[in-house]
Amino acid sequence: MNQISSVQPAPAPVRILAERPEKMAARGVNIHYGDKHAIKDLSITIPDRAVSSFIGPSGCGKSTFLRALNRMNDTIPSCRMTGDITLDGRNINGRDVDPVQLRSHVGMVFQKPNPFPKSIFENVAYGPRIHGLTASTTDLEERVVESLKKAGLFEEVKDRLHQPGTGLSGGQQQRLCIARAIAVNPEVILMDEPCSALDPIATAKIEELIDELRQNYCIVIVTHSMQQAARVSQLTAFFHLGTLVEFGDTDKIFTAPRDPRTQDYITGRFG
């Protein structure tokens, strides 16, 4: 039915969505920052076990919408949201939902690597600890190692797990942050321009990692780089001035966009 959710009229059905089960969905979402109308009547369906990327010129609202997916906007007092966002069909803004609990299911990786100024081990162990996910110390150690392995960082840091996470290189720090997010067993991982502070080699590693992680997670990534969106994502959403212009198969978006604005953006006419 409502397989693609674009505000644009008469969207053609997108094949790839039909093959993937829905993980998150938004219906008629509006977000205001004080006087600014940052997201306008946005609807979208995000599939599980795939990478969806949000692209668009800066200020288009892609990061704002991403932060709405795990209610990080709750921390900004002037931010108001209406509309529904669901995870596995359940409203995440429902009265019975604790944002804290939601965030253990929807993890987040930020633009700038932000490890806690603690040891590598403590960084990863923090989440499982506060959520009481592990029964014993050995359990916790296993979980940390497993998360670091999944984030592709373990081999590089196995001899210095108890040294500060802030001593790692930028790319390693970001993979540490991904390991930290994985450690609480999220279902969805949100990434807000995760490579914008990294060099090309580190970026390549993170992209590789994202590609592996999509086997098990629903991943949403905001990026300012169209090349990155093309490389890592199966689906791409183009945002413009607070509206979702187009969402669909990445190949299609980049080769045959339906909206002239998307066309203009990917060919570099604005942005």
Binding site: D88, I92, H105
Partner: peptide, 12 residues
């Protein structure tokens, strides 16, 4: 290894 509760099933 981990048992995922799942957001939809989670209670407060």
């Amino acid at each position: 290894t981990a048992t995922r509760t799942g957001f939809a099933a989670s209670t407060r």
